[in-house]
């Protein structure tokens, strides 16, 4: 035994023989249900939205600095890399927004039945696609 935690794995079977307990399957063994994907995506998108606040900060600071600084940030946002960042920020923010509402519903005890949480998982994904597309269609028309 290398680690004291190994002691928890030692047991006797019904014949009284000393055995090593089997380990329950780990994450990569399971087929990914949609709920597992939406759960981890909440964290991933949360972190991505957090990174996106750098762009918001840059934009506000530039707006408070000078016309030139503002032109620079507007140029970046309009560049292919900037548009990609902005698109990523839109999708992750919209996802985190809808899935966050799902979390708030869970917090008050709603939506714990299997059918309900599978349906709400898909609803969040569909709402994210529709809403992100809508924001970009409106944005590109206005541009």
């Amino acid at each position: 035994m290398k680690d004291v935690r190994d002691a928890l794995m030692a047991a006797r079977n019904s014949d009284g023989k000393l055995v090593r307990r089997p380990l329950s399957p780990h994450l990569q063994i399971y087929r990914w249900p949609i709920t597992m994907a939406t759960s981890i995506l909440h964290r991933v998108t949360g972190c991505a939205v957090a990174v996106g606040t750098l762009l918001l900060t840059w934009w506000l600071v530039a707006a408070a600095t000078s016309d030139q600084a503002f032109d620079t940030v507007q140029w970046f946002i309009g560049s292919p890399v900037g548009l990609f960042c902005l698109f990523g920020w839109t999708v992750t923010l919209v996802y985190h927004f809808f899935n966050g509402i799902r979390h708030l519903a869970w917090d008050v005890g709603l939506g714990f039945e299997k059918q309900e949480y599978v349906l709400s998982s898909w609803s969040v994904i569909i709402a994210t696609v529709i809403c992100s597309a809508l924001i970009w269609v409106v944005g590109l028309i206005a541009w």
Partner: peptide, 8 residues
């Protein structure tokens, strides 16, 4: 970051 945004 928050202070930069607020001050701006």
């Amino acid at each position: 970051l928050a202070l930069l945004c607020i001050v701006s």
